[in-house]
Nucleic acid binder design. Sequence first.
DNA 1: GCATATGTTCGACGAAAATCGAACTACCGC
DNA 2: GCGGTAGTTCGATTTTCGTCGAACATATGC
Lengths: 104, 104
Amino acid sequence: MTTHVEQPDLAEVSLETALQALADDTRLRIVRELASAPAPCACGSFGLEVSKATRSHHFKTLREAGITNTEILGTKRLVSLRREEFDARFPGLLDAVLAPAAVS
Amino acid sequence: MTTHVEQPDLAEVSLETALQALADDTRLRIVRELASAPAPCACGSFGLEVSKATRSHHFKTLREAGITNTEILGTKRLVSLRREEFDARFPGLLDAVLAPAAVS
DNA sequence: GCATATGTTCGACGAAAATCGAACTACCGC
DNA sequence: GCGGTAGTTCGATTTTCGTCGAACATATGC
């Protein structure tokens, strides 16, 4: 059986917190990868060029901003987007962030 | 005649920069006020509880993120949203940020 | 049990950002 | 010209954030 890591009630996440969490290149990369992944990913499966301490910090930031959910499976943590909940709280925000860059 | 303060080409503004600029309570307040204002506003017309040096800094941040336009009119600076351009660059982002908070 | 794999937590450090007062610039009206 | 108005720029301070190594925790597999 798997448990999940504690996560905030979306109602208590402010827009500022959400934007703050998204306003970082590394975390943006994680969110994009999660959005295109068919299933939850282990933290280590991202090709991030940072130490595991830093990586853990970024995943924590995303989780505490209500953007991701973390399931504990053995020694791994399976991370996924809280798509529906987040969309309900901040309609359109993830879509806008995930939209392909408009090149002019 | 009015001139405008130099502003970036939206194509050169990254999503990260835009999010960074929006991820601040004071600036979020400014953007919301601008969105609901019928006409460009002078910097000083916002009820911000910060010094004018700080205020100037925030307006600069928004301008450099391509979010606002600044017109010089006499001793005043008239600030307005670059709505259409910004929407073209980051579709849906401003809408999401300006959406009324979803209370659950 | 023990080595390994996967993350987290704990300081510490440097870079970046928010804030301010003070000095400065530019313009307006009298 | 002069005083007042509206912002900007500068330097300093404080806070926040990203980053890391090292120590720790926990589960797996042999």
